Amino acid sequence: MPHEVRAVVAVKRGAPVEVRTIVVPDPGPGEVLVDVQACGVCHTDLHYREGAITDDFPFLLGHEASGTVAEVGPGVTEVKPGDYVVLAWRAPCGSCRSCRRGRPWYCFDSRNAAQPMTLPDGTPLSSALGIGAFAEKTLVAAGQAVKVDPAARPEAAGLVGCGVMAGYGAAVNTGKVGRGDSVAVIGCGGVGDAAIAGACLNGAMKVIAIDIDDRKLDRAERFGATHTVNSRGTDPVEAVRKLTGGHGVDLAIDAVGRPETFEQAFYMRDHAGLLVQVGVPSPEMRIELPLIDVFSRGGAIKSSWYGDCLPSRDFPYLIDQYLYGLLDLHAFVSETIALDQVEEAFGKMHRGEVLRSVVVL
């Protein structure tokens, strides 16, 4: 029997979000119904509200979530009712050309629920990143529900589903940071701070946090940054070189995704250093670099999609690191809020007042 629940819906481009009643169907083959316990407010949700990703309104927002499996559909064996899960927006299909090559973190046909969630009049909702978890219940593909240790608090665990995984994975999975490496991270929001934490956990010797907001730089130190640079009045490339004996860093991570931060990351690398871009640019942005510099500096430039993660492997690992006291997920949680406070949380996020607001149901 379909379920009527409260949820946060973006009805039209740029308009404030609304708490509406939506209809969530029972799970069909390969689907899972989840009782949502917590869901972080991510910049991506704001991008959906503003129509910056697609124009498929209305959107059911929220994707950085944890909860408990309520029901499973036919053929589901990965999880069962009562399991505690973190939701992933990548669920590898196992059969596309990337999966067949042993690279499921690049899956080209990631699974989502086949049935739409709807408004009461039958209007289908577009679920943010195939999840839609600013809701009391949500319907996802079974592969999106990743079982983790139930000892993890929901408001902390859910953040692994997006921002923490993206940043941590940019440093560890894409950047391959190792013992003794030097790392610079541009942009100290949730993704950047997770990259800092990941670099420190994997043995980086020097981790330089770069931002234009001293409040964010103070927070970055909590995640392990050994040095901070406020680039509002300082050339960050020169500052990084001074901190690294004139050489530059082994790994530069752009967690902002703008042409100017990309260029800064490019030039603050040591020779043969690696640049990882995890910040998401807008479609109209362009970069221009002297080709001789691209050639002569060597190294590599990589983009990091979702931290190049494999959720079934990486989510339980990060939750275990949290439970062991090695990864402070609580430090990412600035406040807990109710469903009807999401629009207010967007404003706080835009003004840089919070690292993460988390809806707790």
Rank of each mutant, 00 (worst) to 15 (best):
G192K: 14
S66G: 13
F315H: 12
K80M: 04
Y317H: 06
L159P: 01
D314G: 14
R313T: 15
H227W: 08
L361I: 15
L139W: 04
V69S: 01
V237P: 15
P16E: 06
V164R: 02
Y306H: 11
G180D: 10
V148D: 02
G279W: 00
M285D: 14
K348E: 03
D328P: 05
P236K: 03
A195V: 10
A194W: 01
A265C: 15
V237D: 11
K176R: 12
R13E: 11
G161K: 05
A184K: 03
D320N: 10
P281D: 06
H63T: 10
G30F: 02
G325N: 05
C162R: 03
P2Y: 07
D270T: 14
P281R: 11
V256L: 11
G51M: 07
H330T: 11
V229G: 10
A91K: 09
H227L: 03
I337F: 08
V177T: 08
E4N: 12
G163S: 09
I210E: 06
N173S: 03
R222I: 05
V256F: 04
P29S: 15
V9N: 11
E288T: 15
L159V: 10
G299Q: 07
A91F: 10
S231Q: 13
G180V: 06
K176Y: 05
K242F: 02
V76M: 05
D55S: 14
T228A: 12
M117T: 06
P16M: 08
V85M: 08
P92Y: 14
Y324N: 15
S282M: 11
E50C: 06
C188Y: 08
I131E: 00
I319G: 07
G187P: 01
P311S: 08
A272H: 13
K206S: 03
F108M: 15
L291G: 12
T226I: 10
R232D: 08
